[in-house]
């Protein structure tokens, strides 16, 4: 079933093509959020008056900052674009809003940028990379109820070494081939077992939760287990087995282990 949204508000959606956002690490302290806006990419925005105000609203968890980008005809970043008041120094969510006299004329969808995936140009992934000091742990999955996008957190040492060597970790076939099955399994465990989301009810969810469930169902040989009226599964083992089969199919379709073997050459 397809989900459709109807907009009766008159408010215009600012498409992603108009927005180029980037989070940049500074030598010390908070990173900066650099936004460039190009209204010419959408003809619908032509009707917005030149003197409307443009705002970039950045948020993370329980923190928020608003940056005033001036007037619509020529939006310009303020002098201080550091995310000093956000609760994370490695990632930020942001929304562009255009308003005049308190009336909201246009708004964008929420975007997420991280220091690992710092710009908004590619935002079709189900999960985004980030990096952090996590001791000796190579990577970990980060997902919880209020997160904007689930993340793969790479060990900062590994990440930086990969960059130095010219082989960014998240683009490395060998690394990602070993990690992704566990990431996938972790996400499905969280969605279906931890949170007990019913895969059928959540199929049409427009957020990353629905996207992961649709992705899993497309790979499955059998229907996803359903919860009963009380939101419980008949058997957790049944769910675990279904998840295992989906992950196995995912690995097979991508020939993950065969690719790893090829990395070793024909020895």
């Amino acid at each position: 079933m397809t989900t459709r949204n109807f907009n009766y508000t008159g408010r215009i959606l600012i498409p992603q093509e108009c927005i180029d956002g980037r989070i940049s690490k500074m030598a010390s302290g908070a990173p900066t959020l650099e936004i460039e806006l190009d209204w010419t990419k959408s003809s619908k925005l032509e009707k917005i008056p030149d003197d409307a105000n443009v705002y970039v609203d950045a948020s993370q968890d329980m923190s928020f900052m608003r940056f005033d980008y001036g007037q619509f005809y020529n939006p310009v970043a303020p002098s201080d674009i550091r995310l000093s008041d956000l609760d994370s120094y490695t990632s930020a969510n942001f929304v562009i809003r255009v308003a005049k006299n308190g009336v909201l004329l246009a708004v964008s969808k929420k975007h997420t940028v991280t220091l690992a995936l710092p710009d908004t140009k590619s935002r079709r992934s189900l999960i985004i990379p980030d990096y952090r000091d996590i001791g000796e742990r190579p990577w970990m999955l980060e997902v919880h109820e209020t997160i904007e996008y689930p993340k793969i957190i790479f060990n900062e040492k590994w990440w930086n070494k990969g960059l130095e060597a010219g082989y960014p970790v998240h683009e490395e076939m060998f690394a990602m081939g070993t990690i992704m099955p566990s990431v996938f399994e972790g996400m499905l465990n969280w969605l279906l077992i931890h949170q007990k989301y019913n895969a059928h009810q959540w199929h049409d969810d427009p957020t990353w939760k629905g996207a992961w469930i649709r992705f899993a169902k497309n790979l499955a040989d059998t229907p996803a287990p359903e919860t009963d009226e009380e939101g419980e599964y008949e058997s957790i083992d049944m769910v675990s087995n279904w998840i295992a089969s989906v992950v196995a199919n995912f690995s097979e379709k991508r020939s993950l282990t065969s690719n790893l073997m090829r990395e070793y050459g024909d020895a």
Partner: peptide, 22 residues
């Protein structure tokens, strides 16, 4: 704690000290 994996993230809106501080 927010229920999930990864870095700790708190749901502080019910906490008697964290909420007034925020």
């Amino acid at each position: 704690l927010n229920s999930g994996f990864g870095e700790e993230s708190l749901r502080g809106r019910r906490h008697l000290a964290l909420t007034p501080y925020l």
